[in-house]
Nucleic acid binder design. Structure first.
Lengths: 110, 110
DNA sequence: TGGCGATATGGTAATTATGCCATAGGATGC
DNA sequence: GCATCCTATGGCATAATTACCATATCGCCA
């Protein structure tokens, strides 16, 4: 590896940790719901349709990545989005998907 | 799972596939290099400092996700970025990292 | 055609991620 | 205190990811 690349390696590892937290369909589904308003774990569990412990672990991953924060209210734990930049992320992903669709259509059409 | 959530599930899986392709330090490093100009596999192999076959597989993942495209020129294969939206992705990731740093500092400072 | 450099692919082992079950812990209400 | 609801965690089995080695493939040139 490059000297420069070796030096910047931790930087890319940090970035990858964030990206990895975003790289699961259930977590993306929950983030979309949280975009509108905060939700408790029970609501998100119903939404995702997985075991409650599974959802709890997904939320722990998002929290550890710094993407969401939680707030206890009585027996409930509410999660909400912490960062304001997810729109950028969505836009990027959607652009790739649209472009892929376009490429595919071009391949079939031509 | 919600009926609505079940219906939108494939959508989130497609999104997650893109995000997953972006969720590896070596791939992020290569994408940063490719942002400036196209590179052949041998250049990227030197940059990353992994086995050539490993780098080739990373590039296949990026290509399959529709993030890069390749171009053969003689014995070389050049890769370049296909989508124009990666700046959005970087911005999102960097915002999270900065916010995490800020949170950490606030925790220590307060 | 034979050899060489560049790249891709198959195989395999190690690590990591994921999901569910069981269960612990905390809050609430009786 | 006790039962109940909500959430988090430990344990475990399975699946996915990753990296390397070996090797196949392709283009090029002598």
């Amino acid at each position: 590896m490059n000297a420069a690349a070796a030096k910047s390696r931790p930087r890319y590892e940090a970035r990858a940790r964030i990206a990895k937290a975003l790289a699961h369909p259930s977590r993306l589904l929950m983030l979309d719901a949280l975009q509108k308003r905060e939700h408790c774990v029970c609501e998100l569990t119903a939404l995702v349709g997985a075991d409650q412990s599974t959802v709890s672990k997904h939320l722990a991953i998002l929290k550890q990545a710094g993407i969401v924060v939680d707030r206890k209210e009585g027996p409930l734990t509410f999660y909400r989005i912490k960062v304001c930049c997810l729109a950028d992320f969505w836009r990027c992903i959607e652009t790739v998907l649209k472009e892929n669709l376009r490429t595919q259509q071009a391949a079939f059409g031509g």
